[in-house]
């Protein structure tokens, strides 16, 4: 087992009287790929968004790489190290692909323009979109936009990547190109937390599955084990519906 990178203890999140996360404890090691699955409304996205404090937890502690998040003082420090990919891509529409990729490294990391461009070219090549550097996001397909979004996050040299249903907004024929990029990343040793409905990806790429339902981790297992021998009734019910 590698070193622990993310440690989450007693994580709770409520919106008014509605408690979405009801005490989550999980530890994620370096280079581990954790896939979070479960029914809609079970708290998967909220869980993911708490890890980099896009949602501020109601209770509990998140420690990233030895740094305890407190929501104020060091939140930008921690976010530099955690890349995030959204369901709706969230590229900056008023900037070219290249500008999307170089903005944060220059403004946050203080990289020079040449450094930022070199790195952007490296990752654009990696996701197969170097020829789109000067294009605006709106001129790209959904799959291409999501690959740009992944490259944008990678340009910050993050220690971990969070994926929030990265293929849910894509047309079916574009899902594979995005999953392939994610698989490459996983093979390259990136620590990843992935919320997804792609069970094939979970089974093939995941090191561990978290089954999140009604705000708790109902089951936690290696993918093969989870998909072939789910233990909890709710996991069995969920898998019977989708497989």
């Amino acid at each position: 087992m590698n070193n622990e990178l993310i440690k989450i203890t007693g994580l709770r999140k409520s919106y008014g009287n509605n408690e979405v996360l009801k005490g989550i404890d999980v530890s994620i090691a370096e280079e581990e790929v954790v896939v979070v699955i479960g029914p809609s409304g079970g708290g998967k996205s909220t869980f993911l968004r708490c890890i980099n404090y896009l949602e501020v937890p109601t209770a509990g502690e998140i420690v990233f790489d030895g740094m305890a998040l407190d929501g104020k003082a060091n939140i930008n420090e921690v976010r530099k190290e955690i890349g995030m990919v959204f369901q709706r891509f969230n590229l900056f529409p008023h900037m070219t692909v290249m500008e999307n990729l170089t903005l944060a490294p220059m403004k946050v990391r203080g990289a020079s323009k040449d450094e930022a461009v070199a790195k952007a070219e490296l990752y654009l090549r990696k996701v197969g979109l170097l020829n789109k550097a000067d294009a605006y996001p709106d001129s790209l397909s959904g799959g291409q936009q999501q690959r740009v979004a992944i490259a944008r996050a990678l340009c910050m040299n993050p220690k971990a990547m969070l994926f929030d249903e990265p293929t849910s907004a894509l047309d079916p024929e574009m899902i594979k190109e995005v999953l392939d990029v994610m698989k490459d990343l996983a093979d390259g040793g990136m620590t990843m937390v992935v919320v997804t409905h792609e069970m094939g990806f979970a089974r093939e790429v995941g090191d561990r599955v978290l089954f999140l339902d009604q705000g708790v981790i109902e089951e936690e297992a290696e993918p093969q084990e989870f998909f072939s021998h789910p233990k909890s009734e709710r996991a069995k019910l969920f898998l019977s519906k989708i497989l």
Binding site: N52, L54, R79, F86, R88, N90, F92, H94, K107, A153
Partner: peptide, 25 residues
């Protein structure tokens, strides 16, 4: 809202995201 979230998740401050992402749009 995803624009602010994308900016913040890249480690930019609220003001940096405002200035470079939100206000120009």
């Amino acid at each position: 809202k995803g624009q602010m979230e994308a900016g913040r998740s890249l480690g930019m401050t609220w003001w940096q995201t405002m200035r470079y992402i939100i206000l120009p749009q």
